[in-house]
Amino acid sequence: MSGTGKRTYQTYTDNTAYFSEYDRYQERYRQEPRESDKLIVELIRAGLRSHQTAPAILDIGCSTGNLLALLRRELPEAKLSGCDLSTSSVETCRADPTLQDVEIEVADALSLQGSARYDAVTLNAMAFYFNDREFARLLSAVCRLLRTDGLLVAFDWFTPFQHQQIQMMERSLGHPEGVTYHIRSTALVERMLSDVGFTEAKFRPFELPIDLPFPGTDGEVVSYTQRTATGQRLCFRGAFVQPWYHLVARKASGAAS
């Protein structure tokens, strides 16, 4: 990665050293999936209840395929596809025997082409790397790829404060040159969804049902939980609380394909 110039989501995914370590980190969640991933599956299952028995599902930013593997176990009839900008992550997916029937490709989420052919698309913990212009392009691309009444399910950082938009840059062991995060208000995202052809947007705050240990302060920045006086689990990343939400929206009738 270059030490100069504008930081973008592409430069983040070009960090091969980081992704090599990140791919190994993801291995721990293959046998015991993330709680957030389990809820994504339940939201898809509930949202597609009236759809065909073999839905087509695309996981954008599929990483090493943990969500795809869970979808394969829980929705064995589904036709699954995945894409990621990281070549090493896609290679890991393609080498996984449990994902041999899944179509996986190296692709930029903002450059996805093709007609409406999916019943559901997932954006799992990846949209906060995009600035507002890129995020709008991403939503537009997803809408084009979905069939009418198709489902968008996202897991990401949002804020319920309608006039608050947050942009912050983190430097850490994994990102020594910095990575920029974007936290958008639910009100802004709902408007952006409506602008490109989505309706029925719903935001569901996510609280981990399990405790994650405090990692200490001298190593890599990873997620951990802290309990409040009322017993609520706050999910931290280093010094800040992660405002996780699940978002579900539908492609409206008449939206462009």
Rank of each mutant, 00 (worst) to 15 (best):
R73K: 15
Y22D: 12
N131T: 06
T8R: 02
F236S: 00
P176Y: 08
S257L: 08
L193Q: 09
E190M: 06
Q162N: 11
R191M: 11
F128W: 07
V106G: 04
L112V: 10
T92E: 09
T217M: 10
F236H: 04
A255H: 06
F155D: 02
D96K: 05
G178R: 05
L112A: 02
S50W: 00
R30C: 01
I166K: 10
E35A: 14
E134V: 05
R237S: 09
H163A: 12
V179R: 04
V121G: 01
R133P: 01
M126S: 04
C143E: 04
L68C: 07
A141E: 03
R73A: 15
Q226A: 15
W157K: 13
W244Y: 15
S111Q: 15
E220Y: 06
D149S: 15
L48G: 00
A187G: 11
R227S: 10
L193H: 11
G178Q: 07
D96H: 07
R133D: 15
A17G: 09
C235P: 00
E200D: 15
E105D: 09
M1K: 06
A255L: 07
R94F: 01
E35C: 08
C93I: 04
L139F: 14
R147N: 13
D59L: 05
D218N: 14
R184Y: 14
V248H: 00
Y129I: 03
F158S: 08
E200Y: 07
T148Q: 15
D108M: 07
V142Y: 01
A120W: 00
L48C: 05
H163V: 11
C62W: 05
P33Q: 08
I40L: 13
P176I: 07
S89T: 06
A109M: 13
L138M: 14
R28S: 14
S194T: 14
G150K: 04
N131V: 05
L67V: 09
S172L: 05
S172H: 06
H163G: 07
T4K: 11
M192L: 14
M1G: 11
R144C: 09
W244L: 05
R30H: 10
K79I: 06
S172R: 03
Q52G: 13
R72M: 05
F240N: 06
P209I: 06
R7F: 01
G47Y: 01
F128M: 12
H175T: 12
F236C: 01
V121K: 00
Q242P: 00
P160D: 15
S194R: 15
D14L: 08
Q165K: 09
L173Q: 11
T13K: 04
I57H: 00
E105R: 13
V221H: 02
T225A: 01
